[in-house]
Design a protein around this nucleic acid. Structure first.
Length: 649
DNA sequence: GGCGAGTGTCATGGA
DNA sequence: CATCCATGACACTCG
């Protein structure tokens, strides 16, 4: 299959190249799409993984797909397809004049080196628009996927090379801008993102020409306007606008570790100037390889995952350097990935049903006596329990309680392991659970919030079965109430105490004492009642205490913030005052100089500002005074006098 | 598997 | 002395 595909497509590509050289356009992808639509689709899906978007935010919004929350690979895959579809809706850029130029360039590139594809692969520098042209994309998809054949990202590199060849002719200005502007990385990321998506869009559109053509007519004006943008910033703004609804964290796309090796290889491939951009593309590529590795490793598909894994583990450049036969396995790897994803998806969705059924079967087969030993300790650590009913007093339980107890015991097979069913995969739960684990980890009912819906079925199944008197299977509220029943509540039921924990805790002391005395409770029951009351009150007290503590912390934080604001304000006022004082002093000096310059001494000479000063009296009179400069000796004399005085004292 | 947050519980001391 | 309350400390679960 792969060989046939290879030879067939290679032949088509060569024919297309030849025909393109003489000016005849051949759209072989329409043929390929007819025969190899699945393969094309497979290649296209992962390709969109260039974009390092937080797919978790897109989870559950995927078109018709319900993604297992524990399978990031599926997130990645389906989100990629979703992003791709969204980009498709933007329409595909079409540049009829670029086709021939690209093809000529591609021919030379493929003829030059044994590894032409790898060359083009590693030089992913093409600007968005050019590389994503309609005609270009047509041939890009053909030669990109088939000539290169490796492709983790089929459409990108041909588009890049084509774009490079094209740019040299038509859009060198833009290239220079990009070269000179190492630019905000995020901008580059945006640009590269759009490039990749556009390329992918162009390729994907080929697989469905009927759908593709109408889009072209509608969207061409948009792309024309896009083409009219010469400033990168404008382009980036437009890209951001277009991608804003995708809610993608583009910045994460550049957070990946970049392999210097790959970057070097890219840079050495005739486009070293654009190495910055190639690095940006290399990182997603590497991450994609990692993702594929993970997907292959985590999913044990029947379709030889090792092959896919091996290919995925290879550095992209090395994959490109492989022979065509080997690199053709990359497509196979994509096929395998598709199969793996399908299996994972089925496992994640359908497998749950299987797990639930297995769980229920195992629960039904569990020995009710298993837990009887668990609560032998009336102490707090073990008592615990939601399974509390299975306390030592279970033998004393009344009929209703006994039924409850039995059921609860029957449900004791429910363990922490059972709760973790989905995360642990398919396990034989009839043999996997352990009573020890039950006693140690299951019976701590801290009245936590309800578990995620995903885990709910197994965890709540037991209370359902356990309490016949309250069939909760249809009532979620009662279900939660039952699940949140405290251990003391369980114990009270088990001990046939006709009071709820709330009543026991909240009733006045006198009434509580009357209850203890007047109902003929056994010593165990009295002890339990007292413990319940004590624990209940202490629980409330602890809650209040913690709330107070938090309030105190919050209050202190607010106080700190308030004081910081006040401090900043005072500092600003101080600085302003100092500034004002300086200005006023300067002004006074100027005025003094002016005044003194206008005055004359007895000899008719102007007064020296350094020797005289103006003093403003309280009555508003201004007096000229000679400047008094205390001698240094006097000051030191004063100091020595003070020292002498201090010594005397 | 480690970590932090939240919670229940016990022990202790003061009122 | 019994009870209540507050709080530190510990253990546990959960995300």
């Amino acid at each position: 299959m792969q060989n046939a595909k290879k030879y067939f497509t290679e032949g088509l590509i060569q024919l297309t190249i030849l025909l393109s050289l003489i000016g005849v356009r051949v759209d072989i992808d329409s043929y390929l799409s007819g025969y190899y639509t699945p393969l094309t689709e497979i290649n296209l899906g992962p390709s969109s993984a260039y974009i390092q978007t937080p797919f978790h935010s897109l989870r559950d919004n995927l078109d018709g797909y319900s993604v297992h929350p524990k399978c990031p690979e599926l997130d990645y895959f389906f989100a990629s397809r979703r992003l791709l579809d969204e980009v498709r809706t933007l329409g595909s850029p079409r540049f009829p004049t670029q086709l021939n130029a690209w093809l000529v360039h591609q021919v030379s590139a493929t003829d030059k080196a044994d590894c032409g594809p790898s060359t083009s692969n590693t030089t992913s520098t093409g600007p968005v628009l050019e590389s994503s042209g309609e005609d270009a994309s047509d041939h890009v998809s053909d030669s990109g996927q088939e000539v290169c054949q490796t492709n983790p990202e089929p459409g990108q590199e041909p588009g890049s090379t084509g774009a490079c060849g094209f740019l040299k002719q038509e859009d060198s200005v833009k290239v220079k801008e990009e070269e000179e502007d190492p630019a905000p990385i995020t901008q580059l990321a945006h640009s590269s993102t759009l490039e990749q998506e556009s390329l992918l869009e162009g390729i994907t559109a080929l697989s469905n020409p009927a759908h593709h053509i109408p889009l072209t007519i509608d969207i061409d004006p948009h792309w024309n306007s896009l083409l009219s943008i010469t400033d990168l910033e404008d382009l980036d703004s437009l890209v951001t606008e277009r991608l804003s609804d995708l809610d993608t964290d583009i910045a994460s796309a550049i957070s990946q570790d970049v392999s210097l090796h790959d970057a070097t290889v890219n840079g050495s491939r005739a486009f070293g100037v654009l190495s910055g951009r190639t690095e940006l593309r290399t990182a997603p590529r590497q991450q994609r390889a990692l993702l594929r590795l993970e997907s292959a490793g985590s999913s044990h598909s029947d379709a030889s995952p090792g092959m896919a894994l091996g290919l995925a583990a290879l550095p992209f450049a090395s994959v490109c350097n492989l022979t065509g036969n080997v690199s053709s396995h990359s497509s196979l790897g994509d096929c395998l990935d598709e199969a793996v994803f399908d299996q994972i998806n089925q496992l994640g969705l359908e497998g749950l049903d299987t797990i639930d059924s297995q769980l229920m079967d195992s629960l039904n087969s569990i020995d009710p006596q298993v837990l009887e030993d668990l609560d032998s300790d009336s102490g707090l650590s073990l008592e615990s329990s939601s399974g509390g009913p299975v306390s030592p007093g279970s033998s004393e339980v009344s009929s209703s309680s006994s039924s409850y107890c039995e059921d609860e015991c029957g449900a004791t097979g429910y363990s922490s392991e059972v709760e973790s069913v989905p995360s642990k995969g398919v396990v034989d739960y009839t043999t996997a659970w352990s009573p020890v684990d039950l006693s140690e980890s299951v019976w701590h009912d801290h009245s936590y919030s309800a578990p995620p819906a995903f885990f709910t079925p197994p965890s709540v199944a037991l209370p359902h079965k356990g309490i016949k008197e309250e069939p909760l299977s249809d009532d979620d509220g009662a279900l939660l109430e039952e699940r949140e029943m405290s251990r003391d509540e369980m114990r009270a039921r088990a001990m046939c105490i006709p009071f709820s924990v709330l009543q026991i805790v909240n009733m006045p002391v006198e009434e509580f004492l009357e209850v203890l005395d007047g109902h003929g409770f056994s010593q165990e029951q009295v002890t339990l009642l007292r413990d319940i009351r004590r624990r209940g009150k202490n629980k409330l007290a602890a809650q209040n205490c913690r709330k107070r503590k938090l309030d105190a912390i919050t209050g202190l934080q607010e106080e700190v913030e308030r004081l910081q604001v006040q401090r900043d304000r005072l500092l600003r006022e101080k600085q302003l005052t100092a500034k004002t004082m300086g200005a006023v002093g300067h002004q006074i000096k100027q005025l003094t100089r002016d005044v003194l310059a206008r005055l004359r001494d007895s000899s008719g000479q102007p007064l020296n500002p350094d020797r005289f000063t103006l003093q403003c009296g309280a009555n508003g009179r201004v007096v000229i005074q000679p400047v008094r400069r205390p001698a240094v000796s006097t000051s030191t004399g004063n100091k020595t006098d003070k020292r002498k005085k201090d010594k005397k004292q």
